[in-house]
């Protein structure tokens, strides 16, 4: 498939430049003190915004902690609910399956605006509005469909023969799941986990409605900064946001690789 003409690599390079140049400009903004029109580069640089990010008044630590705990919790809970659901959708056939498939996909497309105001009323009645638990629960709605979708594909590709074999050889359902299925789907779970984490981290409207200002995540900090044109501060927090997402994805990637290699040894032994 490789081509000898230099055209394709050049075009690819152009594409990558277009996609990544904005991120570079963002990094420059984060250290720009003054960048008046029409200079192509800032007139003066300073690390002031970065310094104020690490000062006590920026609330960096609580915001990071809340963001990571929330997104991490959502990821774990979503995976826990997605694995059985995906197993059913991937391996079993049952009446009403197409309707169920549609229902679990719906929140990928139906926006939070549709259900966030009503969910706020619901959570007020349940007494979990303005709480960490409430926001955690709310984030499951946009996150679950991603987990189910990815893991359904994993189960479909996997089939159920290996688990059956284990059962035939005398393993209990729990043993078969724990020692056969789980290691096999672990890489899929890791890559789904990376995505779930990011989907949760990016939720603004749901966090806003159900956290009521008490749960302050990176998205909650970022949107007002962008809206009010605080460009340098917004650049700093954006960089942080991207760094956290990337870091988590890399961790998940490594976990997936480790799972994959342990699966190989599992097969070998």
């Amino acid at each position: 498939m490789k081509t000898r003409s230099p055209f394709a690599p050049l075009l690819l390079f152009a594409f990558l430049t277009l996609l990544l140049l904005p991120v570079l400009v963002l990094l420059i903004w984060s250290v720009a003190r003054s960048w008046p029109w029409p200079s192509l580069l800032p007139a003066a640089y300073s690390a002031a915004e970065w310094k104020s990010l690490f000062s006590a008044s920026s609330r960096l630590v609580p915001v990071l902690l809340q963001s990571v705990l929330l997104a991490g919790g959502v990821t774990l809970l979503s995976l826990a609910a997605s694995v059985p659901a995906a197993k059913a959708l991937g391996l079993l056939s049952f009446p009403g399956k197409s309707v169920v498939e549609m229902l679990v996909l719906a929140p990928v497309i139906v926006p939070p605006l549709s259900y966030a105001p009503g969910m706020h009323l619901l959570f007020l009645r349940l007494g979990i509005a303005d709480s960490f638990a409430g926001v955690l629960l709310a984030h499951l709605v946009p996150c679950l469909p991603y987990g189910i979708r990815i893991l359904t594909n994993v189960f479909r590709a996997l089939g159920d023969r290996l688990e059956m074999q284990a059962r035939v050889l005398g393993a209990s359902p729990a043993q078969a799941f724990l020692h056969v299925t789980l290691p096999l789907i672990a890489p899929g779970m890791a890559s789904a986990g990376g995505l779930l984490f990011i989907v949760s981290l990016s939720q603004y409207l749901l966090t806003f409605f159900l956290g009521g200002g008490r749960i302050v995540t990176l998205s909650m900090v970022l949107l007002p900064l962008v809206k009010d044109g605080e460009r340098a501060a917004a650049a700093v927090w954006s960089t942080l946001f991207i760094a956290v997402s990337l870091l988590f994805c890399l961790l998940m990637e490594r976990a997936a690789k480790r799972c994959a290699s342990s699966r190989d040894t599992f097969f070998l032994s």
Binding site: A80, A81, S82, P84, A85, A88, L89, V100, L103, V104, A106, P107, L137, L140, V141, L144, P145, I148
Partner: peptide, 8 residues
């Protein structure tokens, strides 16, 4: 499917 359907 119960946990997922219940939540959603």
């Amino acid at each position: 499917l119960t946990p997922a359907l219940l939540v959603l």
